[in-house]
Design a binder for these strands. Sequence first.
DNA 1: AGTAAATATGAACAATTGTTCAATCGTCGT
DNA 2: ACGACGATTGAACAATTGTTCATATTTACT
Lengths: 121, 121
Amino acid sequence: MKKGNSDLAELHCVEREKVISVRKKLKTDRFFHSLAETFKAMSDPTRAKIIYALCQENELCVHDMAAIIGTSNSAVSHQLRTLRNMKLVKYNKVGKVAFYSLDDIHINNLFAEGLRHVEEK
Amino acid sequence: MKKGNSDLAELHCVEREKVISVRKKLKTDRFFHSLAETFKAMSDPTRAKIIYALCQENELCVHDMAAIIGTSNSAVSHQLRTLRNMKLVKYNKVGKVAFYSLDDIHINNLFAEGLRHVEEK
DNA sequence: AGTAAATATGAACAATTGTTCAATCGTCGT
DNA sequence: ACGACGATTGAACAATTGTTCATATTTACT
């Protein structure tokens, strides 16, 4: 008995073919977890502002981001750590200043798509 | 004194021009809140699975979604309510069965962009 | 060495979240 | 009218979250 359709025999549903068809195309739990994490990275106003700012100027330091979005240094730093862990931003430190930028172009695309969605509502 | 640059005189930052430039392009708090909400809608594994399923078959009932993603009816229904409130899905009821579908094409695009991002990692 | 600035971090807190469980509602078939 | 089924809902719970505050850490300047 193969995993994934182990309970196919006793499958109880309304539209059988649909269920079986979608089930076949279903990704792993790990995949959906990653996917959700990616969206979650952008799901906080402060982080959204940070990403937006980095879309305008592709390098900004912590202090300036705080000045731009109007929150404390600490709050921004904490959120940047989150974004760093989720691989959405990278940084390089020059002296005592840490310059952050978006990690890759996919982030821009994804974020831009979100922007478009909200703008066209 | 206009709002938004009220404290421009005493603006303390590292790269002044950048800060002023990004500040000008900054959207409202309301906007960033909406933007974050949109991403948040997709930031849970169960909701991501629901949306994914609705991308494959554009109409599915609650019971079948539960069967597909392997959770309780109740959990799915709760999440569908969230998605409904956020205007990501719509539904029409036929008899006792509620068929859900994605609210508009933007959702597909946004979600697809997220998928691409995770797949190409 | 000593101070200030830029960032990072840990603890603590309230607030929000997602699931489960139980109860309920509405519609269909008998 | 009844029971079965699909769906919804509210309460409750643990878990996670984002900020603040205080405290490091690191580098630069004198």
